[in-house]
């Protein structure tokens, strides 16, 4: 550890936060125009707007820290897959509405406890982004929690779909709560909490909502938890996601949009 400077640790951590929000925002933005009912189309688009907006704040901070003239768009559009530091959970396909909501819920619950802690980061700018985002993310968590409960405890069909969604997605939650180098470095400079320290609160909340939704957390071996995204080792999906997102910037190098 600590053979990295504070500035480098902070820069990497900002990219990790930006990437997580951007990639999940990119995923859910694909629902816009295709939601199950107009009101929920609008609501989920709000979440996408918040997440991409927050990603921009982190990237803008990263650009300043780096001081090499790169912009938010350079980070978003001109980095390769192995430079992206989002947890795998964020890049999973949308699936049906239930799977989208489950992925969202599992992320929102983590996002909220993380931001609460990031408010006391020794980097004031990071703390300020966290404070500002917290209001939005409390709404995200309330929204996805309500839908997990509604669908889990709705009809037999919706219950079945939500249980499948949970079974498929749960193995990506371990990474959220496990330190990767980007977390360790940030923790060493008191920029961010150790993810492990958030586990109790995270699991407490998640278990509470899933119980209300009458859903059962699958029993899987700890080694079945999938990780790597925070170190830049992604799933096969990630290349396709970036190919789509970055297409215009890659085809027209240096153009202004």
């Amino acid at each position: 550890m600590a053979d990295i400077t504070r500035n480098e640790a902070l820069l990497q951590y900002c990219l990790h936060r930006g990437d997580s929000n951007l990639i999940l925002g990119q995923r859910i933005s694909a629902w816009c125009g295709h939601g199950p009912v107009l009101e929920q189309d609008i609501a989920l688009t709000n979440v996408a707007l918040d997440l991409v907006g927050q990603a921009r704040s982190y990237y803008q901070h990263a650009a300043e820290l780096e001081g090499k003239g790169r912009t938010e768009d350079d980070f978003a559009y001109l980095r390769n897959e192995n430079e992206y530091l989002n947890p795998l959970l964020c890049e999973l396909e949308n699936g049906d509405w239930g799977k989208t909501i489950m992925r969202q819920f599992l992320y929102d619950a983590y996002h909220l406890v993380l931001l609460q802690s990031l408010r006391s980061s020794t980097d004031e700018h990071l703390a300020a982004i966290a404070t500002k985002s917290l209001k939005e993310v409390s709404y995200h968590r309330r929204y996805s929690s309500e839908w997990v409960i509604r669908l889990g405890d709705g009809t037999p069909e919706s219950h079945r779909r939500m249980q499948v969604a949970l079974d498929d997605t749960w193995r990506y939650t371990g990474e959220l709560l496990t330190s990767a180098p980007v977390d360790e470095n940030a923790f060493a400079f008191q920029l961010a909490p150790k993810p492990e320290s958030l586990a109790k609160e995270y699991l407490g909340f998640v278990e509470g909502v899933l119980a209300k939704a009458q859903l059962t957390i699958p029993e899987i071996a700890p080694t079945a938890m999938q990780q790597g995204g925070k170190k830049g080792t992604h799933t096969e999906r990630m290349g396709y996601l970036l190919a789509e997102m970055q297409h215009l910037q890659r085809v027209h190098p240096g153009a202004t949009w």
């Binding site: 199950p36 509405w97 239930g98 669908l151």
Partner: peptide
Amino acid sequence: KAHDEGAWVREAAAAY
């Protein structure tokens, strides 16, 4: 497609 694939969601919300 959006409407049909959303039917289970709307039904679940009503049932809940």
